[in-house]
């Protein structure tokens, strides 16, 4: 966890409100130029973590360093970072250009340099020609790009983003996702990105930090979270459909594994009499290229099998399924991953 050349380093940080839990024991090392996603359900503390990084909140415990400088208690403006807010936080009475250069003006950057940086950031975000519009005269996607332009105009090495896509419609979200990723690579900046949408986290991030109830559950690459979930929470959170969890007693022969995890793509329908589990079909979900068949079994939760094309199987029908041992994931009584056979697919 402790990389010596980490750009952002968070060490055992905690933040509590009136004794209530905010976040606890947060430790993170973020390499320079990486894209880190803070992922988790609402109320898990991911936004709090981001605000602690930004300096909008100050931690009760622990230490934060950015670029080798201890900024634990520093003011937000002393941390050399920019931020994109969920609501974009654009100044409604200022034009696009004035919004973007607001920070430069505050920092007393000269007019010529300001103009040049403005032009460049509007060019990158595709907003040239909108300089004189007010935020109220722009569409949601354009406003989002103004917020991005404001974040990149000052060339800060670290950019924090708090659910920047949650106010966009699904189609726009997919395209802006690519734009943000491209922007991050082109500019070589470090991005810390808060989201509750695992698709965003998995598709954009080099490193995903999955949180729950104020604690980090797992930190790793998207592949690690998907193929080697550290516990049953991660297993059930990551992936669509999420990993099915089967009671260890229903599949004997795997020692002390309390819970056994299995992904839909590793399950296949077996001929009668040859399957390892007999389940009942509960529903069919047609997605175009494939159909997810939801299965119910008294000892399993979330069992799904994926079948190509359109399939319609009446619910209630018995179906037998099979799977290979090496595709199984094993968890102990506390829900922690047991580091042994299976699951550890070569990455």
């Amino acid at each position: 966890m402790s990389m010596p050349n980490a750009f952002v380093h968070v060490d055992k940080v905690a933040k509590r409100w009136n004794g209530q839990l905010g976040v606890e024991d947060i430790s993170l090392s973020i390499p320079r130029g990486s894209f880190v996603a803070l992922l988790g359900p609402s109320g898990c503390g991911k936004s709090t973590t981001l605000r602690l990084l930004s300096g909008l909140e100050l931690p009760d415990e622990g230490q934060i360093t950015i670029d080798g400088k201890d900024v634990t208690l520093a003011a937000p403006s002393d941390r050399n970072l920019s931020m994109v807010f969920q609501s974009y936080a654009l100044f409604p009475h200022l034009s696009v250009a004035e919004n973007v250069v607001f920070g430069l003006k505050v920092r007393k950057v000269g007019a010529a340099e300001r103009q040049e940086k403005l032009k460049r950031s509007l060019e990158i975000t595709g907003l040239l020609g909108y300089e004189d519009r007010k935020p109220g005269e722009l569409s949601g996607g354009q406003r989002q790009r103004v917020a991005l332009a404001r974040a990149i105009v000052a060339n800060q090495p670290l950019c924090l983003m708090d659910e920047p896509l949650s106010n966009l419609d699904a189609k726009l979200r997919a395209s802006v996702r690519k734009d943000i990723k491209k922007l991050q690579i082109d500019l070589g900046i470090t991005v810390v990105y808060v989201t509750h949408d695992q698709t965003e986290a998995m598709s954009m991030a080099d490193m995903v930090v999955l949180m729950k109830d104020g604690h980090i559950q797992q930190t790793g690459t998207p592949e690690e979270l998907y193929y080697e979930p550290a516990n049953t929470f991660v297993a059930e959170f990551v992936g669509a459909p999420p990993m099915a969890l089967i009671d260890g007693k229903a599949l004997p022969g795997f020692g002390d594994a309390e819970t056994i995890g299995l992904r839909a793509e590793n399950v296949h329908v077996a001929d009668a009499g040859t399957g390892r589990l007999t389940c009942q079909v509960s529903e069919c979900e047609f997605l175009g290229s494939e159909t997810f068949i939801g299965l119910s079994h008294p000892a399993a939760n979330g069992l799904t099998v994926s079948m190509p094309g359109l399939k319609h199987i009446p619910s209630g029908q018995d179906i037998e399924i099979a799977f290979a041992d090496e595709d199984l994931h094993f968890f102990d009584t506390a829900g922690k991953r047991l580091a042994r056979q299976g699951g550890a697919r070569a990455i």
Binding site: D78, M83, F91, R107
Partner: peptide
């Protein structure tokens, strides 16, 4: 969050009051 955005940019309380 307008105040927070201004804080990130390093705007003083007075600048924030006057400009925003």
């Amino acid at each position: 969050d307008l105040k927070e955005a201004a804080d990130i940019e390093g705007a003083s309380r007075w600048t924030y009051t006057r400009r925003i």
